[in-house]
Nucleic acid binder design. Structure first.
Lengths: 198, 198
DNA sequence: CTAAAAATGGACCTGCAAGTCCAAAAAGGA
DNA sequence: TCCTTTTTGGACTTGCAGGTCCATTTTTAG
């Protein structure tokens, strides 16, 4: 890691955030360094000063940034899945979030467009999914602890299925524009949990 | 639609199939027309003779081709989901198929890389998803008809959730290489169906 | 057999986007 | 203050991918 001054650090962040925005709007493939330049008010020199390996390196930084954002968004809800009402609130929040942001999904940008190519970005994605699933699993165990879900349930498997449903639902939304599948995945997934009473 | 001779038709197909292969292997973004040329043993002139609108048009043709392939692969199983054993066989086939083809997934190429950009390709994807979900729903109704699943179940919602789970599972596999989530989504989804006895 | 239409090959053009380079300006540090 | 380091601006190079064009060969139809 090189050594930046405060000003340099700010510029670097500005570039990453601007690039992330641009990529959410236009897609990774269609976003050029010049687009980023224009949006962030920076020069070619600056781009390659802060990201010497060029586009690749910027992409990785954007991936990390987006992954952090997703986790930060979800954490508040995921950390307190201690009642059925909380699960419902989480479900509503996820749906509302995707309804609000429409086709601009940081996660999909990360997974489907950046994450596949380089091992580095792939690691970022894998870590994100793993954390997310872990949080869901923790929520389920929380409910088991409170005797609201039976202990016979395979927690990791259920969490994995729920996560997969969400991912798929988002994917469908991104191509068809409809939230139906995301809602169905969440509702059926939670209903499934509720059938497992102790 | 223009008028091709038999030879022309064959060349056109060769181009589409070669392009599909190339795109499955290297990804859409990294596949150039020259790659397609090389692989299919064709010339620039031929490419633009059969696809006057160039790359865009070829992409759409590839999308349609891949969608047809997916449906053709699934249809045999989907059309006879009349017993729990059949559902299990379908589940095993889906998993085996993805285990076999590894990272090369025609569907993901279609959805995540081609399908988002142009309205035409988007329509192809939407239609594919809709047919797939319809087939699953038919399978569920079949089971209801045979009194193996209760009639209280919301068929379309369940089918939508299952489809979302599969899509998400595939997506996770493509980024992490693991089949865990696909298996979990299928197993949990089918288990969910089995709890709805009449 | 011959004329029209379709199929093919490949040279060429063009624009664009990534990346290089260096000089000027600003900030930091003794 | 003066020297060093960082930050910035932007002209320039380079390669490549998409697309055009036209001459040539092959096929088809009457």
């Amino acid at each position: 890691m090189e050594t930046w001054t405060a000003k340099g650090e700010a510029t670097r962040r500005r570039i990453i955030e601007g690039a992330a925005l641009e990529m959410r709007e236009r897609g990774v493939a269609l976003t050029t360094l010049d687009d980023v330049r224009l949006r962030t008010g920076t020069s070619k020199g600056q781009l390659f000063h802060y990201f010497p390996d060029g586009r690749e390196q910027l992409l990785l930084a954007v991936a990390q940034h987006e992954a952090d954002r997703v986790i930060a968004d979800q954490q508040p809800h995921l950390s307190k899945l201690t009642s059925w009402a909380a699960w419902q609130a989480w479900r509503d929040d996820v749906v509302a979030r995707y309804r609000g942001q429409g086709q601009q999904c940081p996660l999909s940008v990360l997974i489907t467009q950046i994450g596949r190519n380089t091992p580095g970005a792939q690691a970022v994605t894998t870590q994100l999914l793993s954390r997310w699933q872990g949080d869901i699993a923790t929520g389920i165990r929380e409910m088991q602890g409170r005797r609201k879900i039976g202990s016979g349930l395979d927690v990791e498997q259920t969490a994995a299925a729920l996560l997969a449903g969400i991912q798929g639902g988002v994917m469908v939304m991104l191509t068809t524009g409809s939230l139906t599948h995301l809602e169905a995945a969440l509702d059926v997934g939670i209903a499934q949990l509720r059938t497992h009473t102790p």
